[in-house]
Design a protein around this nucleic acid. Structure first.
Length: 545
RNA sequence: GCUCUCGUAGCUCAGAUGGAUAGAGCGCUUGCCUCCGAAGCAAGAGGUCAUGGGUUCGAAUCCCGUCGAGAGUACCA
């Protein structure tokens, strides 16, 4: 509808002989309905440039504007120079009909058609269970992947991990020590080892499988392998419970094995942006405005995380993705600029990578902040949270705030949030509609059809609801292109509110066949929008609750 | 010290390219079930948009300073 109005506006502007740019013409949905359904401030933009009076410019535009009268009311000039447009019911009714026929794909777009996008998220190394912090990223990542799918992209959900290195050796040795402890051996457990109870669980597994046969050796490999397998399975399961399934698990190690790490270093050397000093290889980031140079390969010969990260991203492009979305916690905020810089130097377009940084989750319990650390084991696991609150509530909770905002997770509230959680407000609306549809078709002589005559609709409650429903496709587009899932929740909340309002003063059953069927169709349209929105968010759409 | 994110109602948070009277949930006050689901609806109280300047027709939004919170600033990831 915006493009429709825009083209008419452009014609009027051209007729008036005003010079303008396509981006001069914006429409917004006014907060106040007295200002119509769509409003434009184009007169301000042009008046400023021509040093003219905005109202006069607006009037000049309107004099030359001709739009079809059957769909749109006569435009009005309001305030200091806004031009407001108001649609006629006929417009709304025809659009609802289209919505009903489109059904479960209503709100999908094709802007990403034929393109492949990778969304990388979670990417935790298998050293312990996923915590609430990981949970936020997992849910955000999966939902952004869903949004990309709704834009028409072919999406790959990827998990990048490392099961080699010191970290994993410490993990293996942690299990080994607990294993020995199970046999009553006096051991000294280093403070920087993994303290969690899950280490003991794995140690007991080892006893079940191997008895005491490993007591004599100090080989950590079998312990490491077991720990990795158990923990990774646990991680995958935690994700699965929230409806998250990665398509690819990409092992950092393979970058070494396939020579990609060495190759990346060689490429950077060729570009002359590295140098050797103190036995280490440095990346000359100061040449590009950074405060200090960064180490790519330590004096021990071991690369820092930067180098494999660079190699990994090169592979992302070589694997044929048109677009890459990386989701990191705010603790990684300093790592990605170096990666992007390296890619740029090597001739890749950094604009193809979108890095999303989400703020951390602070957990409060009994009014006190719980500090979390995998090492120390005073963490709250994602599984525990899912047990307590349920998958829908967990997903919803992590999505309802913008990722730039710190998320305060009040555990006491999360536990008792069963009937006062906003997710139920939305689901309730859906279940309520389902119930009406059942009842209407059972008891009354109503029958839903996507080609029912909708013209009996037209009162304020009905039109307000329709107006909102028709915003769904654009909301999906905005939510996806801004990578801000919480916007969809804000929107769906408005839909639910407006539906409840409609419901309370407009009966579906007992108002006659024509109006009844039209309202029934409106209910189905609302249900469709809610359901499609829930699908994107990854929460269930209950028929009963 | 420097960089990034942030500061909006008692609490938790929304406020699309700068727009018209600042929004929701929870909590608080008051109404609404002989009728499609009261997990709901309606009404009310509650604000110096951290703070001081600046930009302009117009600022919660953009720019600079100050205060406060979090993260980063490693030859850890």
């Amino acid at each position: 509808m915006k493009t429709f109005l825009k083209s008419h506006l452009e014609q009027a502007l051209a007729k008036a002989g005003m010079s303008f740019l396509p981006e001069d013409i914006y429409f917004e949905i006014p907060k106040n309905q007295d200002h119509g359904d769509l409003s434009t401030n184009v007169a301000f933009t042009l008046a400023k440039r021509a040093k003219a009076n905005p109202r006069a410019v607006a009037q000049q535009i309107l004099d030359l504007l001709s739009i079809p009268e059957e769909l749109v009311e006569k435009p009005e000039i309001a305030g200091p120079g806004f031009i407001n447009f108001k649609f006629k019911p006929a417009y709304f009714i025809s659009e609802v009909g289209a919505l009903l026929k489109t059904g479960s794909t209503y709100g999908r777009h094709e802007v990403g058609k034929g393109q492949r996008v990778m969304v990388e998220f979670v990417s935790a190394n298998p050293t312990g269970p996923l915590t609430i912090g990981h949970g936020r990223q997992a849910v955000l990542g999966d939902t952004i992947a869903n949004l990309m799918e709704w834009l028409g992209y072919e999406v790959v959900r990827e998990y990048y991990f490392n099961n080699a290195g010191r970290q994993m050796r410490v993990l293996g040795d942690s299990v080994r020590l607990r294993y020995l402890e199970e046999f009553g051996e006096k051991i000294e457990f280093p403070q920087d080892y993994y303290q969690g109870e899950y280490i003991r669980d794995i140690a007991r597994e080892m006893i079940k499988e191997h008895g005491d046969s490993l007591r004599g050796s100090d080989d950590v490999i079998p312990f490491k392998d077991k720990a990795e397998a158990v923990i990774f399975e646990d991680i995958k399961n935690s994700c699965r419970r929230l409806g998250i399934n990665h398509d690819v698990y990409y092992n950092e190690n393979s970058l070494y094995e396939n020579g990609h790490v060495d190759e990346s270093l060689a490429l950077l050397r060729e570009k002359g942006v590295t140098y050797d000093k103190d036995g280490a290889v440095w990346f000359k980031t100061t040449d590009f405005g950074n405060e200090q140079d960064k180490v790519l390969v330590k004096s021990t010969g071991e690369p820092t995380y930067r180098l494999p990260d660079i190699a990994y991203h090169i592979q992302k492009f070589k694997r044929g993705f048109d677009k890459v979305v990386d989701i990191f916690g705010s603790d990684h905020i300093a790592t990605y600029p170096d990666v992007l810089l390296a890619l740029k130097i090597l001739g890749y377009d950094p604009a193809m990578i979108t890095v999303l940084i989400h703020q951390f989750v602070t957990v409060t319990q009994a009014g006190e902040i719980v500090k979390m650390s995998t090492r120390k084991a005073n963490f709250i696991t994602l599984d525990w949270l899912t047990d307590e609150a349920g998958a829908d509530v967990v997903r919803f909770f992590f999505l309802m705030r913008s990722m730039g905002a710190h998320l305060n997770f009040d555990l006491d509230l999360a536990k008792k949030e069963t009937d006062e959680n906003p997710v139920f407000y939305l689901q309730y609306a859906h279940a309520r509609i389902a119930s009406i549809v059942r009842k209407a078709e059972d008891a009354a002589e109503l029958k839903y059809s996507d080609s029912v005559d909708l013209s009996p609709l037209g009162n304020a409650d009905e039109l307000d609801l329709i107006r909102l429903l028709l915003q769904f496709p654009e909301t999906v587009l905005l939510t996806a292109t801004h990578y801000e899932p919480h916007r969809l929740i804000v929107y769906l909340n408005e839909v639910a509110t407006q539906f409840h309002k409609f419901y309370h003063s407009n009966y579906v059953i007992g108002v006659g066949k024509e109006l009844g069927n039209a309202r029934l169709a409106l209910c189905v349209a609302t249900k469709t929008v809610l359901k499609n929105g829930f699908d994107i968010l990854g929460i269930s759409a209950p028929e009963r609750m």
